[in-house]
């Protein structure tokens, strides 16, 4: 599959003596040492990854680990210090202002942690903003904006101002605003962390459903491991600016690279958050039997547990149309849960 976003050797160093800081980092010095010696802060440290078309790539890390800086570099809201980045075939380092603007208008969009909505514009004008900037006529962009508002469940709220909406609804506006321009790549910078837990849960479910339908390429930032498990095709764990492990949820859970990652896996309520599809194996040439229990791809592992515990048969994971996507085996699930309990 073609990568849509390619990042290699990306560094972002805040401060003046960036070269000295990078050398120290190459010698293995940690953030505090580098800061003490050069007065530079290494916010992103030699990060490399690809994101494929239709994939949801989640970057998980604690506060201050450099996630926002990373996503801002990749969207070039700030300039990276070193590194190569490519989005939809455009090499960002070479892109002129015009080319970058063009790329942003047609290919990418971002949803922000604190929504970044425009308080002086009605909801519909917020959603239509990207189109307005592109020069789309008023009627047309409003029509499109109202369509998208319907998609995110805000039918009829277009004429309100953002502040009149609840937090969850405001972030739906943020999401609609990003979707309205039909971007290829969507960046999410902790979009749900300002919401309370129940609403956050709803929004996550909604994003999963939307993603099944829209199949966008998503780079999603979060500090919530459960959220990462729920949404991700692949997860990158970030610590002090560097990626400590990149892998599928299954890999992360079953083979944590170090104690830092393991600490996360042990706290996660795996069965509740992990979707059934994240542990499934390809059907291959196994002949499916009619009697095998079935589950949907968005269902959690927990909902498949009764079948797995009671009978020695795999569970078939199907998509919304009932087509089989893969098989869930008792051994895999047991291994993950065991790891989790250790």
């Amino acid at each position: 599959m073609e990568p849509i976003v390619t990042v290699s050797g990306l560094w972002k160093i805040f401060g003046k003596k960036v070269d000295a800081a990078r050398e120290l980092a190459a010698e293995g010095a940690d953030r505090e040492q580098i800061q003490a010696e050069t007065d530079c802060l290494v916010a992103v440290r030699d990060v490399t990854f690809d994101v494929h078309a239709g994939e949801t790539f989640v970057v998980m890390g604690l506060s201050g680990s450099g996630k926002s800086t990373l996503v801002r570099c990749v969207s070039r809201l700030i300039e990276p210090t070193f590194g190569h980045m490519e989005v939809c075939g455009t090499i960002l380092a070479d892109a002129s202002d015009t080319a970058l603007r063009e790329l942003r208008r047609s290919k990418m969009a971002m949803v922000f942690q604190h929504f970044g909505l425009f308080p002086h514009r009605r909801v519909v004008d917020n959603v239509a903003y990207g189109l307005e900037v592109q020069g789309v006529a008023r009627d047309e962009r409003h029509e499109r904006a109202r369509e998208v508002l319907t998609t995110v469940g805000l039918d009829g709220w277009g004429d309100h101002y953002p502040q009149q909406l609840s937090g969850g609804m405001q972030q739906r506006v943020g999401l609609a605003r990003a979707l309205a321009v039909e971007p290829e790549v969507l960046f999410f910078d902790e979009p749900f962390s300002a919401l309370d837990p129940l609403i956050r849960r709803d929004m996550q479910d909604e994003l999963v459903t939307l993603q099944i339908e829209l199949q966008r390429t998503i780079v999603f930032i979060t500090h919530d491991f459960a959220e990462a498990l729920r949404l991700a095709d692949r997860i990158a764990i970030m610590r002090d600016g560097a990626f400590t492990q990149v892998g599928t949820p299954l890999e992360i859970l079953t083979q944590p690279a170090d104690d830092y990652v393991r600490a996360f896996t042990q706290d996660a309520p795996i069965a509740k958050v992990l979707p059934a599809c994240s542990l499934m194996r390809p059907v291959g040439d196994v002949a499916l039997e009619e009697s095998w229990p079935r589950t949907t791809e968005t269902a959690t592992l927990e909902s498949a547990l009764p079948f797995l515990l009671s009978e020695h048969r795999p569970v078939v994971v199907c998509n919304a149309d009932g087509d089989p996507l893969g098989l869930l085996h008792q051994d895999d699930v047991a291994a993950v849960l065991e790891q989790n309990l250790r």
Partner: peptide
């Protein structure tokens, strides 16, 4: 800042950001 970033992220020119976001805000 986030408002301005949001505007830039949609590919607004400086002039557009000034006219559509900064001055109204």
């Amino acid at each position: 800042g986030p408002m301005v970033e949001a505007s830039e992220m949609f590919g607004a020119t400086d002039r557009q950001t000034l006219r559509l976001v900064r001055i109204p805000a």
